[in-house]
């Protein structure tokens, strides 16, 4: 099987020669391997693309993210962003300082936002180069995380309890913005959008709030993604075990699980409806040895089984992770 066939088979619960491997999020890590400063790729975007192509020579992922700068929408909406040398860009100035600012928000013109344009150019280039052989996807944040960046995460958390109606208004706006990003993704013809929601992490909000403030907007986004002809993948950080029933209802085309989720439990709840992926510890990938990563990977496959399962890290591959450790994810599947 080609890497692409392998991923497609896993997504439709068909048999595979080897369990496919998605990082799931390797972009910044790969840049870190080949560049000294992540901030450089925002000045010279094609260097970011080169890093991804180079990394594939060493780590043969079956699929990968071709757009990893998932906080670009935050800047497009008008927030000020800082680009550290190593690590994700950080929002430093919010546009929704008081709840009344929500009514003053206006849809950004993405075609005029240079960072967004560059990102999609890089994604298009990578898609053209890799897409025939490998599965390629764009990583974007879901409305809850975008809303958190526009408002400030803590302010958003307090608003949930103090003024829920304003939160819904802000989430509706964020949903509109992200629909536009979904359209751009469809235009360059990637296979899927990997929607992720770190701020809706199970470590941060309760199942009840997840159901009220995250699920409805996620559902709208997943539907839009499919209407555009793309697969809609989902990643929620933290131990989502207590809300997998809500995720079953959302029915993404793939659910990426964080390390704390027991794959047996996840498989049991999402069985035969939602393919799952995960969930080797990112801490282990950063700190341990290849032999440990291979053992952890095999354990994941043993728990999840070979059907409807993709192997990967539980979240972002940490910057500074040794290449040998990441490569071990791919090596492990060949031994089973």
């Amino acid at each position: 099987m080609t890497p692409r066939e392998r991923v497609e088979a896993a997504l439709s619960f068909e048999g595979v020669d080897f369990v496919p491997v998605l990082p799931p999020f390797q972009g910044f890590w790969a840049v870190g391997v080949y560049e000294t400063k992540i901030s450089e790729i925002f000045k010279d975007p094609m260097r970011g693309a080169e890093a991804q192509l180079n990394i594939l020579n060493k780590v043969p992922f079956d699929g990968l993210e071709v757009l990893w700068d998932w906080l670009a929408p935050v800047e497009a909406c008008g927030c000020k962003v800082h680009f550290p040398d190593r690590g994700n860009p950080v929002t430093i100035d919010r546009i929704v300082k008081v709840p009344e600012d929500i009514d003053r928000l206006s849809m950004p013109d993405l075609s005029k936002h240079s960072r967004t344009k560059n990102n999609f150019e890089v994604a298009h280039h990578l898609k053209k180069t890799l897409g025939a052989e490998r599965y390629v996807y764009v990583t974007l944040t879901l409305p809850f995380t975008l809303a958190g960046e526009l408002r400030g995460v803590e302010a958003l958390m307090l608003d949930i309890l103090k003024r829920p109606e304003d939160v819904h208004k802000l989430l509706s706006f964020a949903t509109e913005v992200l629909r536009e990003y979904a359209k751009f993704s469809a235009e360059i013809g990637v296979d899927a959008i990997f929607w992720c929601d770190p701020t809706a992490s199970a470590d941060l909000i309760s199942p009840r709030h997840f159901k009220n403030f995250v699920a409805p907007y996620t559902k709208a986004i997943l539907k839009k993604t499919r209407d555009l002809g793309l697969k809609a993948f989902l990643h929620i950080c933290g131990n989502t075990s207590d809300r997998l029933n809500v995720i079953l209802d959302l029915s993404p085309d793939l659910m990426s699980l964080d390390t704390k989720v027991d794959l047996v439990v996840a498989k049991d709840i999402l069985n035969k409806k939602v393919p799952i992926m995960g969930n080797v510890s990112t801490t282990d990938i950063l700190m341990k040895k290849p032999i440990d990563i291979i053992a952890a990977s095999k354990e994941c496959i043993r728990r999840a089984g070979k059907i409807g399962f993709l192997l990967g890290a539980g979240c972002d591959i940490p910057i500074d992770s040794p290449i040998e450790n990441v490569k071990s994810l791919c090596d492990s599947t060949k031994e089973i």
Binding site: F28, R86, G87, N88, P198, C237, T282, L286
Partner: peptide
């Protein structure tokens, strides 16, 4: 750290 990216720092 809440995200893995911060850990090396």
């Amino acid at each position: 750290a809440l995200m893995t990216t911060t850990m090396p720092g």
